[in-house]
């Protein structure tokens, strides 16, 4: 592991007119680290994620990313072409709704191969072999490679979306409620898969979720947000087992026990 962070975020704020999206967010993300951002609906976690992934431009603050050559680049000063290139090579974005992240009208194989073709891969046989490999890694049968994602179940779509994002070997993956809308057993399998992939590939990830169990299973560190501000942050086990901020205590005690 490197002794420099992968992403440095400093005093990041986003306002929608006079309303606060998120305000004064500062943190470092280290290579191979999974950071969970938790909080209730409307707490600004998705706004933060969209700002970090440059899908939204923040109102103020900076974020710099350590490129593969070791140089830090300020995300919001990069040209759009560079940002989009980063988005499809070194980064991944897993949407809550797989239909937002997949091309629903082309086959699963083409969905996985799209990023490869976007970076200039022009050998059909190799693209297909890579697609087969990635489908098996996310536990999708090889004989479904020519099916459209429309014919897939919710869990399969989500796994396909993950394969599509990881095929170019990104170093940083953004996930917005990756298990939202899935039933619990499928959630468990997906989390298991994600945990394995993140460890094997040494991925850094920022996972936005309202589900504390997801944070517990996937992340090493977490930030708790409320009304656009970070109310508490620290190691996941520490925050969940010994919550200090009143809001975190409320959040942790709201988990239903069965």
């Amino acid at each position: 592991m490197s002794d420099e962070p992968l992403l440095r975020v400093s005093a990041l704020s986003k306002f929608y007119g006079s309303r606060v999206g998120c305000e004064n967010i500062t943190f470092d993300l280290w290579p191979g680290e999974v950071l969970a951002v938790v909080g209730e609906s409307g707490s600004g976690k998705t706004t933060l994620l969209n700002c970090l992934s440059t899908r939204l431009l923040p109102s103020s603050g900076t974020a710099s990313y350590r490129m593969r050559d070791g140089q830090f680049r300020e995300l919001y000063r990069m040209s759009e072409a560079e940002r989009r290139f980063l988005m499809r090579t070194d980064w991944g974005f897993v949407h809550q709704n797989p239909a937002d992240g997949l091309r629903m009208t082309v086959s699963a194989g083409a969905n996985v191969g799209e990023r490869l073709m976007a970076v200039g891969d022009r050998h059909y046989g190799k693209i297909r072999a890579t697609a087969v490999d990635w489908l098996s890694r996310v536990e999708i049968d090889e004989d479904r490679i020519d099916d459209e994602p429309r014919a897939f179940s919710g869990g399969m779509r989500q796994r396909l979306q993950i394969a599509r994002n990881l095929v170019t070997g990104p170093r940083l993956v953004f996930m917005d409620e990756p298990t939202g809308g899935l039933d619990v057993s499928v959630q468990a399998r997906l989390l298991d898969l994600l945990r394995g992939l993140v460890t094997d590939l040494g991925l850094a990830a920022i996972v936005v979720t309202h589900d504390l169990a997801v944070a517990r299973l996937l992340s090493q560190r977490m930030m708790v947000m409320k009304d656009g501000h970070v109310v508490e942050s620290g190691l996941t086990d520490r925050v969940l087992d010994d919550p200090r901020a009143p809001y975190t205590q409320l959040l942790v005690s709201s988990i239903l026990q069965v």
Binding site: R84, A110, G113, E114, M117, A118, I145
Partner: peptide, 22 residues
């Protein structure tokens, strides 16, 4: 238009890929 401007033509090959796959 943005894809033309930034020369992002990977999608065009997705169409050809689909042809071969089918």
């Amino acid at each position: 238009r943005k894809m033309h401007a930034l020369e992002e033509y990977g999608l065009m090959h997705v169409k050809l890929y689909e042809d071969i796959a089918r």
